[in-house]
């Protein structure tokens, strides 16, 4: 067996892979938060709850309708995205012109309601969700054993993140989005339906959270509180990266996942808190965040 710094390579790379997977979720979630923040100027506290709803959607699709993982990967984000559209149209839109903190409080309330309803119905224990047959098993790479599903999660998340980056930074649609983030009034005065863009942006952001939820379902169990603590770490990731840059959100997400994984190997007691410690250090050195544009 190969040893690195006294740790077996199996354990080291296994933890790194787990870290990378968490990093993929951090990236997907903080990407959604950044996109929503850009257009709506709110931090979506309901993000963790909607991540959980995404996982439950996959569970319901399978157990109630017999619809498997692959369709769920598309349906769950659509359902949650639609839910987000309704939240935006019926509630968030009415906060226009108020202090941005109200948006935060409102979405916190939504998170409590959603999590409360699921807890009321399903308690706090986890529900199992099987890895799809086509991704069962794994391969031995010599220095580590690589489960297929985990490899898929990392690669697929990366593809989704990069595709989102491409759409926002390189396409006409993305140009509208960037312009409306800067100056919604003028973009609207050019004849663009900015309120509709805002609604769809919120829907898209939470759909990304739901997608992460579906990806997480076979790895972590499906639990009503799976997003509650997780989202706080994502907030720390967002503070570290700064929400100004799309690529920044993606990189920070994966990077912190890896660091967390390494911490699990070398100093497991700190693995829960390492992201927060890094946040504190970044606040001291570069308060605007690694990729933040303004202080």
């Amino acid at each position: 067996m190969i040893q690195i710094l006294g740790i077996s390579s199996q354990a080291l790379f296994g933890q790194l892979l787990l870290g990378l997977i968490n990093g993929a979720f951090y990236a997907l979630l903080s990407l959604g938060l950044a996109v929503i923040f850009g257009m709506l100027n709110i931090v979506n506290f309901a993000h963790g709850a909607l991540y959980m709803v995404g996982a439950f959607c996959a569970y319901f699709l399978l157990n109630w309708f017999g619809i498997g993982y692959w369709p769920a990967l598309l349906i769950a984000p659509l359902v949650v995205g639609l839910f987000g559209v309704i939240i935006e149209r019926t509630m968030l839109q009415r906060l226009a012109g108020l202090d941005h903190l109200y948006g935060l409080l409102l979405t916190f309330g939504v998170a409590l309601i959603v999590q409360g309803v699921f807890q009321y119905q399903y308690g706090s224990s986890g529900l199992p969700y099987e890895i799809p047959d086509s991704l069962k098993g794994g391969r031995n790479l010599g220095f580590m054993y690589l489960p297929n599903y985990r490899a898929w999660v990392v690669i697929f998340s990366l593809v989704v993140c990069l595709a989102t980056w491409y759409v926002i930074e390189k396409t006409k649609l993305g140009a509208y989005l960037r312009a409306a983030t800067e100056n919604p009034t003028i973009v609207r005065a050019f004849g663009v339906n900015v309120p509709l863009m805002i609604t769809l942006t919120y829907g898209f952001g939470v759909a990304l959270a739901a997608l992460a939820g579906v990806l997480a379902a076979p790895i972590n169990q499906v639990r009503p509180l799976m997003g509650a603590d997780f989202i706080i770490v994502v907030f720390a990731v967002v503070v570290i990266g700064g929400m100004g840059s799309i690529m920044g959100s993606i990189l920070t997400g994966f990077l912190l996942g890896l660091i967390e994984g390494l911490t699990k190997v070398f100093y497991p007691e700190a693995s829960n808190t390492v992201v927060f410690v890094i946040m504190a250090i970044v606040l001291l050195i570069k308060p605007a965040g690694l990729f933040g544009r303004t202080a």
């Binding site: 931090v43 967002v238 410690v277 606040l283």
Partner: peptide, 28 residues
């Protein structure tokens, strides 16, 4: 001293994250 380095919603997120750190500390 850490959290007043950011404002508005960032302040809210920083305080939440720091308090979660204290939570994990108390847990362990």
């Amino acid at each position: 001293a850490l959290s007043i380095r950011r404002q508005g919603i960032y302040f809210a997120m920083v305080t939440l994250a720091l308090s979660q750190m204290i939570y994990f500390f108390c847990l362990q």
